[in-house]
Simulated assay, not measured.
Amino acid sequence: MSALDLTANGLLLAMLGIAAITDLRSHRIPNWLVSAGLLAALLVQILGHGIGAGSWAWLTGAAAGLAPFLVLYLIGALGAGDAKLMASIGAFVGVQAALHIVIASFLLGGVMAVTIMLTRKHARQTLAGLSARLLWLPFGWRATATGNDKMETTARLPYAVAMAAGVLLVMTGTL
C-alpha cells in the first residue's frame, strides 16, 4: 500500500470518526467536516490519478455515494448530512467501493434501526410512521397523513455509525 493510500485511508477514517461521534451526540453531521472531506478526497484523487482521471474518479464516486442516500433524504428517511457524508465517502473510494459501502451501510443501518426500535420499545410507532410514508410515496414524496415532509418516527438513527462500520467492513475485505 502506497503512502498516498495510507494517507487517504487515514483521512477517511478520521472524517468518519468525527462524523460518528458528532452524530451520536447531536444527531448532526457538520457541513465543515463533509466539505473538508470532499476537498481532501479531490486532492487525493488528483494526486493518485492526475487532474482529468482524478477529477472524474472523485465526481463519479461522490455521485455513486450520494444518489441512493439522496432518495432516502427526499422521502425523509434520513438527514441531509447523512447523504452528504456518503458523497464524501464515495469521493474518497471511487464508484465500485462506494457501491459496496452503500450496501454495507444499508444492511448495518437496518440492523441498528431494528435494534434501537426493539430496545427502546418504539417498534409500533416507528413502523406506523414508515408504513404511512411508504404507502403515500407513489403519490408524491411530500404527501403524508400529517402533512409533514419528514417521516414520523420516534427514534433517530445515528447513520454515520453505520457508514463508518460499512467503510471498515469494505476496507478490511470482510464484505
Rank of each mutant, 00 (worst) to 15 (best):
M1K: 09
S2A: 07
S2M: 11
L4H: 10
L6Y: 14
A8W: 01
N9Q: 15
N9P: 03
G10T: 13
G10N: 12
L12S: 01
L13A: 06
A14N: 05
I18D: 05
I18H: 05
A19P: 03
A19F: 02
A20M: 05
T22M: 12
D23F: 07
D23A: 09
L24A: 12
S26Y: 14
I29D: 03
P30R: 11
N31Q: 08
S35V: 14
A36C: 10
A36W: 03
A36N: 07
G37C: 05
L38W: 01
L39H: 09
L42R: 04
L42D: 07
L43K: 02
V44Q: 01
Q45R: 15
Q45W: 04
G48H: 05
G48A: 14
I51Q: 13
G52V: 15
G52K: 12
G52D: 14
W58F: 13
L59T: 13
L59S: 13
T60R: 15
G61T: 04
G61A: 12
A62P: 00
A62W: 00
A63N: 09
A63L: 15
L66P: 04
L66I: 03
A67P: 02
P68W: 01
L70V: 10
L70S: 09
L70R: 04
V71F: 15
L72C: 13
L72W: 10
L72G: 11
Y73A: 06
L74Q: 12
I75K: 00
A77P: 06
A77Q: 03
L78Q: 04
A80K: 03
G81I: 01
G81Y: 02
G81C: 06
D82M: 05
K84R: 08
K84E: 10
L85D: 01
L85V: 13
S88F: 02
I89T: 09
I89D: 00
I89M: 05
G90R: 01
G90D: 04
F92C: 00
G94S: 11
A97Q: 15
L99I: 13
H100V: 03
H100G: 11
I101L: 01
I103S: 09
S105M: 13
L107C: 11
G109V: 00
G109W: 00
G110E: 08
V111C: 09
T115I: 10
T115E: 05
M117V: 03
R120C: 09
H122Y: 06
H122R: 10
R124W: 07
Q125V: 08
T126I: 02
T126E: 03
L127R: 08
L127D: 06
L127Y: 10
G129E: 03
R133T: 08
R133D: 00
L135M: 10
L135R: 12
W136G: 00
L137I: 06
L137M: 14
P138Q: 11
P138M: 12
F139D: 06
W141D: 01
R142F: 07
A145I: 13
A145G: 14
G147L: 07
M151L: 15
E152H: 07
T153W: 02
T153Y: 04
A155P: 04
P158Q: 09
Y159R: 01
A160V: 12
V161S: 09
M163R: 04
V167E: 01
L168E: 06
L169Y: 06
L169N: 05
T172E: 11
G173N: 13
G173H: 12
G173V: 07
T174N: 11
L175A: 08
